[in-house]
């Protein structure tokens, strides 16, 4: 079975380490915050200038001056700090954020990522995504393995305009966990019940399949 969005978030959360500063993009990455493993502390960075993002507010706590990068009302956790946009991106560009999780339309074997525009469709902008992929050493891309019409999104070469070049090393899809090494995708784990054959069939770029590909551990 393909992973649900929640299971994808849960699998990404297993990569969190105690003391990590983490930037989570919009969509599935946001859900990762719900699955921080017990016994570890992470601090969430929101690129509009909030380091130490807390949960959504109660009705009484809603404050128009306190939002996240998705423009949603949020709270600050104890120990948070707030900076301006230049300082916030200094943290990102300067490599101070330990892990960035974001979505994408396409990733290729060179570690290129396309996530911000589809020619012919209205382009809304890249927001902070180009800064995030250029600045972070440690990035996990989350996306479905193939498009709704079945087209592969893990490609030999991205077809859409790039968000960043050569910056992606790890991708979690609903079918597999894949790492990018030496210009190839390497199949590291598969979703429970998903066959290696299905993953090969739905992967566009060159895929290395080790002798043994373990099933990943996620809760039902």
């Amino acid at each position: 079975m393909a992973l649900t969005r929640e299971q994808m978030a849960q699998r990404v959360a297993a990569e969190l380490e105690d003391g990590f500063y983490v930037n989570l993009g919009i969509g599935i990455p946001t859900l990762v915050a719900n699955y921080v493993p017990a016994g570890i502390e992470v601090m969430l960075q929101s690129e509009n200038g909030l380091l130490g993002m807390g949960p959504f507010p109660t009705e009484e706590q809603v404050d128009p001056d306190m939002i996240n990068a998705g423009k949603q009302t949020v709270t600050a956790q104890p120990g948070a700090s707030i900076v301006d946009s230049a300082d916030s991106f200094a943290m990102i560009r300067g490599g101070h954020v330990d892990l960035t999780v974001l979505g994408a339309f396409e990733v290729d074997v060179q570690g290129n990522i396309a996530s911000w525009m589809v020619p012919g469709k209205l382009v809304k902008g890249m927001g902070g995504a180009m800064d995030l992929v250029a600045g972070a050493e440690n990035i996990i891309v989350t996306m479905t393995h193939a498009s709704k019409s079945g087209e592969p999104k893990l490609l030999q070469a991205c077809t859409l305009p790039l968000t960043g070049a050569g910056c992606i090393k790890r991708v979690l899809t609903d079918l597999a966990y894949i790492e990018i090494e030496n210009g190839q995708f390497v199949l590291k784990e598969r979703a429970p019940g998903v066959s290696v054959e299905e993953i090969i069939r739905k992967t566009g770029g060159e895929l290395v399949v080790p002798d043994s590909v373990p099933e990943m551990t996620v809760a039902g």
Binding site: E47, S85, A86, F89, I92, V123, M126, G127, G128, D131
Partner: peptide
Amino acid sequence: ELTPQGNLAERMR
């Protein structure tokens, strides 16, 4: 003119 968010901030700074 679409500009990456961090670039926009740093260009102003």
